[in-house]
């Protein structure tokens, strides 16, 4: 990873940078798995390696792919970085050793999650129970962030004159490009791809649904599901053209999904409030607390998934709708 990082610094061809970053991200994901953070790994792979890279590529397609020679102010920057790094290393000196089970973080707060979440929430995946219930509010904030980003991208780039989208034009231009790092094979209107992807689509969607509802038991959840769901459409758009994809899910639906997911989440909280609990208390939603928790988590995960999927699609469409 360090090697990739250093290469990133030197590399000027931004397409390579984007791809390398994708790899970097994947490596990080692998590292997460090694360190038992399967949920995080899942997300990182989908987001860092997937969405981010696609976005960067789309941006590059819209702008330029060569970076200029870095200006001469590198020394000052280096100094700042070295000082910061030194400070961090200095800070690590008193840290508990890696993997030490006696470290404070493993002794305080968390034990309760591990010991009692089964009884209190009834969901095997502790990450899910913490995410959706104990710290459900953070997750609401997280969905809001996604919502903000999507709406923000809409505000920045949305509905700017009738243009030929970048993805459509790429299909025309891609033969002319010989050396680009654009994954052109994906874009090529080849029959095999069409068939395979048509076959794949339902599978991906199904997988998304599985991830969505299986999040309680294994790694997964609304966020990952949303990303997968979104990427299914992105794939569709890449192969069949953004124009067609746009017709599959019209703008109004996209926007409705974006808002509705967040609303659903927030309103589940309000429901808890109306039924006598505090905000975001799911236990009161059903007769039995664990059932309530189950119901609540399912609903909010569904909200998360909807918003995230809509956000992914919106962001992608908006980017692909741009013109060079």
């Amino acid at each position: 990873m360090v090697a990739i990082g250093l290469t990133l610094v030197r590399l000027r061809d931004l397409f390579s940078v984007a791809m390398l970053f994708g790899i970097f991200s994947l490596l990080a994901a692998a590292l997460y798995v090694v360190q038992d953070a399967v949920d995080v790994a899942f997300t990182e792979a989908a987001v860092g390696a997937g969405i981010s890279t696609v976005l960067i590529l789309a941006t590059l397609a819209l702008t330029t792919s060569e970076e200029k020679a870095p200006p001469g102010r590198a020394l000052g920057a280096l100094a700042v970085v070295l000082v910061t790094g030194a400070a961090l290393i200095y800070g690590t000196l008193d840290m508990p050793a890696y993997g030490d089970p006696a470290a404070p973080i493993h002794q305080h707060v968390v034990p309760r999650y591990i010991e009692r979440s089964a009884a209190e929430i009834g969901v095997p995946n502790i990450v899910t129970s913490v995410l959706a219930s104990y710290r459900g509010y953070d997750t609401l904030g997280e969905v809001t962030v996604i919502f903000t980003a999507a709406a923000g991208v809409l505000a920045l780039l949305g509905r700017r004159r009738g243009r030929v989208g970048i993805v459509d034009s790429l299909q025309v231009r891609q033969d002319a490009r010989k050396d680009g790092e654009v994954p052109r094979s994906v874009l090529a209107p080849k029959p095999i791809l069409r068939v395979v992807s048509k076959l794949l689509m339902p599978l991906i969607l199904l997988f998304a649904l599985y991830v969505q509802f299986h999040g309680d038991f294994g790694p997964g959840g609304g966020f990952q599901a949303g990303v997968i769901f979104g990427s299914a459409f992105i794939l569709y758009a890449l192969i069949f053209g953004a124009h067609n994809a746009r017709q599959v899910i019209p703008a109004a639906v996209r926007r409705a999904g974006l808002g509705a997911g967040l609303l659903l989440y927030a309103l589940v909280g309000v429901a808890g409030l109306l039924m006598g609990g505090r905000y975001l208390n799911y236990a009161v939603l059903a007769d039995e607390p664990t059932h309530g928790q189950h119901l609540g988590i399912m609903l909010i995960e569904f909200g998360v998934g909807t918003t995230v999927a809509a956000a992914m699609i919106i962001i992608f469409f908006v980017f692909s709708g741009q013109d060079r």
Binding site: A151, L262, L267
Partner: peptide
Amino acid sequence: VVPLISAPLCLL
């Protein structure tokens, strides 16, 4: 929460 809920409303 009220501003939060009203934000998607505005969008819609």
